[in-house]
Amino acid sequence: MTDVAVPNTTRKDWASDQEVRWCPGCGDYSILAAMQMLLPELGVRRENTVFVSGIGCAARFPYYMSTYGMHSIHGRAPAIATGLAVTRPDLDVWVVSGDGDALSIGGNHLIHAMRRNVNLTILLFNNQIYGLTKGQYSPTSEQGKVTKSTPFGSLEAPFNPVSVALGAEASFVARTHDMDRKHMQEMFRRAHAHRGAALVEIYQNCNVFNDGAFSQISGRDQRAEMLIPLEHGQPIRFGADGGRGVAMSTDGHLQLVDVAEAGEAALLVHDETREDPGLAFALSRLARGPFEPTPIGVFRDVVRPEYGAGMAQQILDAQERKGPGDLATLLASGGTWTVS
């Protein structure tokens, strides 16, 4: 908007004056802090930053940011953000959503925003439960989950959000968790830098209705053995001293191996930019749930035409071809006759 240098800001500048009302101990606090601490580093302006959310605990997020924001209705944030992003390419538009909001009631909007590759940064807070409505199973809850609405266990197979995003042609997909601020910030930074739709799944603990859902993998003592960091161009290794890794078996499946046994050369080298999403998809399925070694980091980061830019280009092309629209010419375009 102006050529004045972006002012230096601190975390405080990005926090609104509204009292944060999540339950004490909620994972959302650490995500909010990570964001408020990161934004001063991104060289962006508050007035050019917009957070759009739907409904759910996570969806209160915009109220706590001193940016522009909209707390909309259940599931619709990607659609609303699409209209904003394509008409205002000068803005940074973030979408904040949860597993119910993004993958249940709003699943259609989420997949189409990614398919179109709208310039949105989508944060999906996945706590595998409905928190705001007090504890029903969600589309990411594990099969058999006992909740108020499934007293005899959920019959439904869960969605894997990273798999869904890859299947929906997302050009950027990452996963992080609420116990590691630095990793979250790195994922947010990368997603923000990406042109097009970027989805970041955040494993987030709901300490009231689904406490410990991710503790088997994200606890401080578990991380080394249970989280598999994906690093572009590097062999995929994890475990204390990097003793374990991911390799492709002869039948094409990914498997966990001991590096000492399999040999370093057998390890899969991670390539975020691979055109074919097949390997990224296979990585997203490596763990059946957050109780097995689980990849985190950037699964995919490819260049694809951004939707809003394409829309703007079509306008420029049309204006070049026909000149800027003239109303009188338009009204006469169907053929006219004159009565005198």
Partner: peptide, 28 residues
């Protein structure tokens, strides 16, 4: 389009109005 008109064939009716609301928030 030479009038600067942006049209989005939305994924459903809800996204049709949702995107229009988003555009209105942005000043369109």
């Amino acid at each position: 389009k030479h009038f600067g008109v942006r049209t989005l064939q939305a994924e459903d009716e809800i996204a049709g109005i949702g995107s229009a609301i988003g555009a209105a928030f942005g000043g369109a």
